[in-house]
């Protein structure tokens, strides 16, 4: 964060701390990662559920994200089955959202008169969340560094008002800033005194090896199928019991188990669509239950607001 005479290239953790400070200064609550396995920062209930309803909501957080099929046993310099997303949600979307976002790039050391920053059309859709939005992927010298989306619907419901979502791919950005070609070479932390610097590989290489193996070869598919079913049923029970937050946890669980089953290669093309529809039903049901549980409060606080 120091704007000293010799500008030091940020370590991975300093980049995160810089983004935290940047968005904190713009009124965001800095949340912690959600404590469940998810495929993207969007799955955090702070995005999925809180993007619904009329209340303002401004948060930023790091979310570890798991994509079992992207595992490469630690052998690919760009692909990971576990990586980090930096997620910012601003509801309603402020008029200067693009400028705020570009300010964050400058904060982590990207000079827009030296690097080519571009907003390239990329509409976002999450079939498992019943969500979609319009926006861009943001390119820095041809590399996608952020997904920038104006949420239009979540769980099948209109976002009123619309939230702006920024999803930074932290490893990619860091590789860019640090100018390294292999994710495992990233400087995670800097050396301080006698304490040596830590690399991304020091922290995660072994994880990638073991989890790739488990995802692709070891995970017991019967257990996964049973887990999917159990999560599905528990989600419905929780919806019926009027505890949508707990229901949504089960939707997340089912979604991740489905991803694992895909990595194990036991879901056929036809079944795939069917499983996705089942996850979507859980997510939509949870969103609906969340709205039902809150709408009385919302309409009292925001007269004239309707679903």
């Amino acid at each position: 964060m120091t704007e000293g005479a010799e500008k030091k290239v940020l370590s991975f953790q300093d980049m995160i701390l810089t983004l935290h400070a940047y968005w904190s200064a713009r009124g965001c609550a800095i949340l912690q990662p959600y404590d469940m396995r998810v495929g993207a920062g969007t799955f955090h209930p702070a995005t999925t559920l809180r993007s619904l309803g009329p209340e303002p909501w401004n948060v930023a957080y790091v979310q570890p994200s798991r994509r079992p099929t992207d595992g490469r046993y630690g052998e690919n310099p760009n692909r990971l089955q576990h990586y980090y997303q930096y997620q910012v949600i601003l509801k309603p979307s402020p008029a200067d959202l693009q400028e705020q976002y570009l300010g964050s790039l400058a904060a982590i050391g990207i000079d827009p008169l030296l690097h080519d920053i571009r907003f390239v059309e990329d509409d976002w859709e999450s079939p498992t969340l019943g969500a979609w939005g319009l926006g861009w992927e943001v390119w820095c010298d041809g590399m996608e560094v952020t997904q920038f989306t104006y949420f239009q619907q979540m769980g099948g419901f209109d976002c009123k008002p619309v939230a702006g979502e920024l999803t930074y791919g932290l490893e990619r950005l860091a590789m860019y800033i640090q100018n390294v070609d292999n994710v495992y070479d990233l400087r995670f932390s800097d050396a301080v005194g006698d304490v040596a610097a830590v690399s991304y590989g020091d922290v995660f290489l072994e994880n990638e090896r073991q989890f790739s193996k488990w995802n692709f070869e070891v995970a017991d598919t019967d257990t996964l199928f049973a887990g999917f079913k159990a999560a599905e049923e528990e989600c419905k029970r929780a919806i019926d019991a009027g505890v949508p937050l707990a229901a949504y946890d089960q939707a997340i669980e089912a979604s991740h188990l489905f991803n694992l089953l895909q990595a194990r290669g036991v879901i056929s093309v036809q079944e795939r669509a069917n499983y996705m529809a089942r996850v979507r039903d859980l997510a939509k049901g949870s969103c609906k239950a969340w709205i039902d549980s809150q709408s009385e409060r919302w309409t009292a606080k925001y007269p004239g607001w309707t679903l």
């Binding site: 309603p92 239009q152 008002p161």
Partner: peptide, 18 residues
């Protein structure tokens, strides 16, 4: 799409991007 604080209402202006 819709955007911004006006999008709290379904009738707010629509444009390709804000």
């Amino acid at each position: 799409m819709r955007w911004g604080k006006d999008s709290a209402s379904s009738e707010s202006l629509r444009w390709v991007r804000p």
